[in-house]
Amino acid sequence: MKRKPDLLWILVILFGLGVVTTGYAQGLWSGKKDLPVEIVQQQPQQSTLFKR
């Protein structure tokens, strides 16, 4: 008869997967900071609806 895995081991495995996934995601996120960022300011558009 096979023994079911304890709830503690299931939680440990899920926690480990969460730590690995978070580390991987942060690694991807921090790698994108090296890319050049172009800042473009838009000119305010004037509305012609209320002009006479």
Rank of each mutant, 00 (worst) to 15 (best):
L17V: 09
E38V: 09
V40T: 15
K33D: 02
W9I: 08
G27R: 00
W9F: 13
V12L: 09
V20R: 03
V37K: 02
K33R: 10
I10N: 02
Q43L: 14
K51S: 07
V40R: 12
S47W: 09
G31A: 01
R3K: 15
L7Q: 08
Q45E: 10
K2L: 15
L17N: 01
L11N: 03
Q41G: 06
T22C: 09
V19R: 11
P36W: 03
G31T: 00
S30W: 10
Q46D: 11
L14T: 04
K33A: 13
T22W: 01
V12E: 14
F15C: 13
V40M: 01
W9C: 11
D6K: 14
G18E: 05
M1V: 01
I39C: 03
W29P: 00
E38D: 10
V37D: 09
T21F: 03
W29C: 01
A25W: 04
Q42W: 13
K4F: 09
Q41W: 05
K2F: 11
I10P: 01
S30I: 10
R3E: 05
L14K: 04
I39L: 10
L17H: 00
F15W: 12
Q41D: 06
I13R: 07
D34V: 05
T22V: 11
G31Y: 11
T22S: 05
D34G: 13
T48K: 03
M1F: 06
L28K: 01
Q42I: 06
P36G: 00
Q43A: 04
G31I: 04
A25T: 06
D34P: 09
Q43G: 05
I10T: 15
Q26T: 15
L8E: 10
L7M: 08
K51H: 00
G23Q: 05
W29Y: 11
W29F: 12
G23L: 02
W9G: 10
T48G: 07
K4T: 06
G23K: 02
L35M: 13
L8P: 04
W29E: 06
Q26M: 12
T22E: 14
